[in-house]
């Protein structure tokens, strides 16, 4: 990343932070319902990895904490917010919600709510890429706790046996909801677990986007050059609760504060200020612009969009007028 790139990703991370914070408010105002899992603290992961990959070209899949992954792939934030508001203009037409953001045009292949569910889907997309001979890769972002699902082991095994172009990104935020990794997992370094399938793996600091980018570049190049799957573990932290209901009882104030000092946005901001690339005033102005865009464009768009029609409740269950259903095909 050159200086211009770094300024751009700083803006993207700050946008991600403010977007998610605004979602929180909208939830409290009851404009958003259901489950809501927010991303503050982890911004350098999705944004740093996708900076090293090719957003909109590579296929991306993830879990329920998915807003920012989609936006980084190219999804219009207005369509994401409209989805959270359950509107017809939402990227999943109001049928998906926060945990099921989809934008196939930008190759964001979905957020899925079953922990570990996307592993095999990601490997399957890699199988399709391999068959079709394209230069895309399949990228699967999941949390640390997902690695205790059978699908982790089964999928990594198949990815390795068939040498498939899939990059597994483990965003290790030290907890699965309220259970600390060491309380649920015998080997807490997740990258070591990938080794048992003969998969090349690495672990790096997920709070410093320069390090994320550097490690992801190696990983992406490895996978794209046909050398097979790769597993990259990013050590990170979520600043908010797991979802909107979270007692917080499982971690200490001190711990949250310590990680707060390693805010990915502040790390990059201060680095750019020290290098003379931006000033604090530039940063503050940028923050204001972002705030205004969210308040004046994104929220009104979501709020003023229509809800899906009840008459279309059963649309999208099955293919419409599929010729093989009623017969008569010769």
């Amino acid at each position: 990343m050159n200086a211009a790139d770094k300024k751009r990703v700083l803006r993207e991370m700050l946008f991600a932070r403010r977007f998610e914070e605004r979602c929180y408010e909208a939830y409290v105002e009851r404009k958003i319902g259901g489950f809501l899992h927010l991303y503050p603290g982890q911004e350098a992961c999705a944004i740093g990895v996708m900076e090293a990959a090719r957003p909109g070209h590579d296929y991306v899949i993830t879990g329920y904490r998915d807003h920012i992954h989609a936006i980084k792939c190219g999804t219009d934030p207005k369509a994401v917010m409209a989805e959270l508001f359950a509107r017809e203009t939402g990227c999943s037409k109001g049928r998906g919600g926060s945990m099921h953001i989809f934008d196939v045009e930008h190759r964001f292949m979905g957020g899925y709510a079953l922990v570990g569910g996307p592993f095999p889907l990601a490997v399957g997309m890699a199988k399709a890429i391999q068959m079709k001979g394209g230069d895309e890769i399949s990228i699967c972002f999941l949390g640390d706790a997902a690695n205790n699902q059978g699908t982790f082991h089964e999928s990594l095994n198949m990815a390795a046996v068939w040498n498939l172009p899939v990059l597994f990104i483990c965003e290790n935020n030290l907890y699965g909801i309220g259970t600390a990794t060491h309380r649920s997992t015998a080997v807490t370094d997740q990258y070591k677990r990938a080794c048992s399938y003969g998969i090349t793996s690495n672990q790096t600091d997920g709070q410093d986007i320069d390090q994320v980018y550097a490690a992801a570049k190696v990983a992406v190049d490895f996978v794209r050059s046909g050398q097979g799957p790769y597993f990259l573990e990013l050590m990170t932290y979520r600043y908010r609760g797991h979802s909107m209901s979270d007692s917080g009882a499982y971690r200490t104030k001190d711990e949250v504060e310590e990680w707060g000092k390693r805010d990915p946005i502040i790390i990059l901001r201060d680095r750019l200020i020290a290098a003379g690339e931006i000033t604090l005033e530039d940063y503050q102005a940028m923050d204001k612009e972002i705030f205004a865009a969210i308040e004046n464009e994104i929220i009104p768009y979501a709020e003023n969009s229509p809800e899906p029609k009840v008459e279309e409740l059963e649309k999208y269950v099955l293919a419409e007028n599929d010729p093989y259903v009623k017969g008569g095909v010769r």
Partner: peptide, 8 residues
């Protein structure tokens, strides 16, 4: 298909 609003 349903969750994606018919996209996938």
């Amino acid at each position: 298909r349903y969750m994606s609003g018919g996209q996938l």
